[in-house]
Design a protein around this nucleic acid. Structure first.
Lengths: 190, 190
DNA sequence: ATCTGTGAAGCACTTCACAGCG
DNA sequence: CGCTGTGAAGTGCTTCACAGAT
């Protein structure tokens, strides 16, 4: 790998793919960084820079072929399958264990470790109370999971090499209240 | 306001409050930036720097009084009420409109604009299909809402002065697949 | 002796600005 | 002549490192 691609860029790539799909569904085959940027609320320079990290996909004077750029991002990032297969579900509540969810039967969390051993998974989604999160996450990591989406309201720690992303709507709401209390006039007076 | 506080700092303040509450519930009255940082996976220097933007709360040689620091952050940020009052709910589906949710009756989205006019709100949560999001958000903004939490899988645009935060689990999952495909050995070989 | 508070240095991402290709 | 691709400049956040308070 020549240069490390910034993490923020990796996070934007799926956003670009989504926008490209929207364009395709409107039969638009070519797009400029200008137009894509306007749709996404991103500067054209940023889009060009982001793409430049992994290739040269545009035609000067014209823009990007929507189809080709989409494919390039998908195959570069490994984002392809567009869908995820959920292979196991767990709970600690006896009332929930055993219930069916689509094709799955919810297992007791006590068999989490051995299940991971038998059937490794790539990504785990954790949605448990704050107090239980760290233990579950430790079990997941020990079981070989390297990517975790954490809905628990806690800043659980993982060893380096494991990717964790926290999704916490309450924190988001709370930080927003700062801007309500410290509201500025709609048109800021520099 | 002397200096503008970085947005990232504002987002971390509620995280600190949460950790301080956890400490209090374990009857810990004093904490150092070191210890707090270890709990949260943040460097001690960052915590000290963050706090320095709005005051001096520590005692050199000792650390921070947990209770006092918590209060300071709460009152500084306007994060206080710890709870949010949900005052209205809307849907476009006739089967859902009219249903009760706790103390609320779900209204038809067609009366969203007039409702906002009668009863202004601070924050809105949007969870609609991608195609409908921009229109709903435009109505909210026109109705005076200045903070929006967006669950719709789309990069909706708002005028400057309005805060919007996107929460998109699918995007988070997709960007994680990059690291699965491009996985490095657990212990990185520099 | 310890841990804060903070300028200064370092780093990472964004934006500029323009050469160069189609 | 328009729009990409990209070094260089700019911006904003993080980390360092240490003086100073207790």
């Amino acid at each position: 790998m020549p240069i490390e691609i910034p993490e923020v860029v990796i996070e934007r790539l799926p956003v670009y793919v989504r926008a490209l799909n929207a364009l395709l569904s409107q039969d638009q085959e070519v797009v400029s960084s200008q137009e894509l940027g306007t749709r996404l609320g991103v500067t054209p320079a940023q889009i060009r820079k982001d793409l430049s990290y992994f290739g040269r996909f545009g035609k000067r004077g014209r823009g990007y072929n929507v189809r080709r750029l989409g494919r390039a991002i998908l195959s570069y990032g490994g984002f392809e399958p567009q869908g995820f297969r959920i292979v196991e579900a767990f709970d600690s509540d006896a009332k929930t264990v055993g219930r069916r969810v689509g094709p799955l039967v919810i297992k007791d969390v006590s068999v989490l470790a051995e299940t991971l051993h038998e059937r490794p998974v790539d990504i785990a989604i954790v949605a448990v109370p704050a107090g239980a999160a760290q233990a579950v996450i430790d079990t997941l990591v020990k079981g070989g999971v390297r990517s975790i989406l954490n809905y628990a309201p806690t800043a659980a720690r993982v060893p380096s090499g494991v990717h964790i992303r926290h999704i916490d709507p309450v924190l988001a709401l709370q930080s927003m209240t700062y801007y309500i209390k410290n509201a500025r006039p709609t048109v800021a007076a520099k």
